[in-house]
């Protein structure tokens, strides 16, 4: 479903601020795979997802999604195939538009937008039913502005909006990291339900090792722009947090050695 071939990405190439963010990444993800992505801060996780989504063009390599070579497609065009949910709940919705307007915008993801009504009468029942499933009482607030909702409510709405039209690929970038623990686990359960029901091909970045092990059928660990670990099937199932941390620290060994040298 997703094929990355030798993806390379620099930021500020050639300047003193040069960052080698993605170092020759190749990755094949099958249809229906639910991949969790871990790695230390600055490992390149967000950059990887951004590169897939078209937030920038990669410096070299090839990206194909659902059989389309999208390497040269701009972000808005890739949106036909991809849905995203960001860490910041404010990024996924329009605050000054109403719930139903936001949902209608998402209901046209990747489609032509013409001169018929933005929110159609027949949509409302569909929206209400979808919101009911969240169990947050949002079904009675179709005409409220989204800016009035809490972060958790907005993120739940964003999850719903991201999957109103089934995406070929769902990209989640620490989408529960900004929420309080209770809301976070609600959104995570919701994510699991949606991904399973629609059998979505999903990449989910998390900094929670338990979630990384407990969710999905494949786990990759990034470090300094490379894929350091790629586990699936039983290998992943039998993984413990302790194993993972060991691998994690072994990967960062050189850095830790450097740190301890500096500390001493």
């Amino acid at each position: 479903m997703i094929v990355l071939e030798s993806i390379v990405k620099y930021f500020h190439k050639g300047s003193v601020n040069e960052v080698f963010a993605l170092d020759d990444i190749s990755l094949h993800i099958d249809e229906g795979d639910f991949v969790t992505v871990i790695g230390s801060n600055g490992a390149g996780k967000s950059t990887l997802l951004n590169g897939i989504a078209g937030g920038f063009f990669v410096d070299s390599g090839q990206i194909s999604i659902a059989g389309n070579d999208v390497t040269a497609w701009p972000e808005y065009k890739r949106a036909r195939l991809i849905s995203r949910v960001f860490q910041d709940p404010l990024l996924g919705t329009c605050p000054s538009a109403t719930l139903e307007q936001n949902m209608a915008l998402a209901g046209l993801r990747g489609k032509r937008r013409g001169l018929s009504r933005g929110v159609k009468g027949r949509d409302r029942d569909r929206f209400r039913t979808a919101l009911e499933q969240l169990g947050l009482g949002l079904e009675d607030r179709l005409l409220d502005k989204v800016g009035l909702l809490s972060g958790g409510q907005r993120q739940a709405l964003t999850m719903l909006m991201a999957t109103m039209i089934k995406p070929d690929v769902l990209l989640l970038d620490e989408h529960i990291a900004a929420l309080d623990p209770k809301t976070a686990s609600q959104i995570l359960t919701l994510t699991q339900d949606i991904v399973e029901n629609q059998n979505l091909t999903t990449l989910m970045i998390t900094h929670n090792m338990k979630h990384a092990i407990g969710f999905g059928n494949r786990l990759i660990m990034l470090h300094q722009g490379r894929i350091l670990l790629d586990l699936r099937g039983d290998e992943k199932k039998n993984l413990t947090v302790k194993d993972l941390l060991e691998q994690f620290y072994r990967a960062q060994g050189e850095e830790l050695a450097m740190d301890s040298m500096l500390l001493n």
């Binding site: 808005y76 949106a79 036909r80 991809i82 996924g92 000054s96 046209l108």
Partner: peptide
Amino acid sequence: DNQQMIRSLGVNT
């Protein structure tokens, strides 16, 4: 209102 959002919904802003 939110360029990033509407772009990721497929609109050429």
